[in-house]
Amino acid sequence: MDLLIDFAISLARNVVLGIMMGSVYALAAMGLALLFGVANLINFAHGEYVMLAMYMAYFFSVTLVIDPVVSSIINIPLFFLIGLVTYFLFFKRVINAPPLSQIAVTVGVVVLLRNIALVIWQAEPKAPPFTIFSASYEMGPITIPLDKLFATIISITSLILLYLFLERSKFGTAMRAAADDVDAVSMMGIDTGRLFLLTLGISMMLVGLSGSLIMMYQAVTPTSGLLFGLLSWAIVALAGLGSIRGIYLAAVIFGLADALASGMWDPRGREIILYGLFILILWLKPRGLWGRR
């Protein structure tokens, strides 16, 4: 009987944890889905940008002695700028190219970013130095880590703001239209080059924010990008390119899989579950659960 209660408590703990982790993954995946859906750009280096954002959050919190969460105030505009720079350096030339060229160029960006991080920060994991939210809140037998709770609240708020932007603003409407039919949008007299630039900028802002939030509770190494990149792609695959709500639900599903695999089985085995799930989704649900294509 005790065993059963222990199991139930641990299950509940991991479910809460999984929902929180999924909420943060949703931000990173949303950035990827926007870029893929609106600009039709396959960004293989998406995870590497998340990794870079984590390092920047670490850097700011150490040099300016601020909490990693606060670093998002700097990270968001910084990554908007990084997005603009990358657009003119790499993406502008391949935005209308076949998928293979896009993959090849962005794989080159993977190599570049990963090793720039290695040059600057070396291979040892860098962990967040301190955070005012590192305490936790006891709710009966279930412990709720405050840092993750706070990250969840910020993440959901940002996704709601993004939803309002896409639904209410002129640019947002243009972006949604471009996701349906780029040619029609360009014939309506909208400068698609500027539209793609802005899309990449917003995608990178989401990456910057997600990096700051993940850095609250997780260490970063130059190879962290692989996990967050594959995870973002997996979430997009599960959700399809339909809606923000779809991305959020898919992210929570992967967050749950992650937390349950790490907490109930073996932390080293989480990738087997996550990527195995990813491949199964690709086989069985190639259009995603709520996708339009």
């Binding site: 396959i42 998928p99 594959l230 695959a237 990527y275 491949i279 690709l282």
Partner: peptide, 24 residues
């Protein structure tokens, strides 16, 4: 993968995922 028509970026990602699954 071929039966369910995996292509382009999705095939690439699935094959990359396989490497990490086997490693773990």
């Amino acid at each position: 993968s071929f039966r369910f028509g995996l292509k382009e970026v999705w095939y690439a990602l699935a094959s990359l995922g396989l490497v990490l699954i086997l490693q773990k």
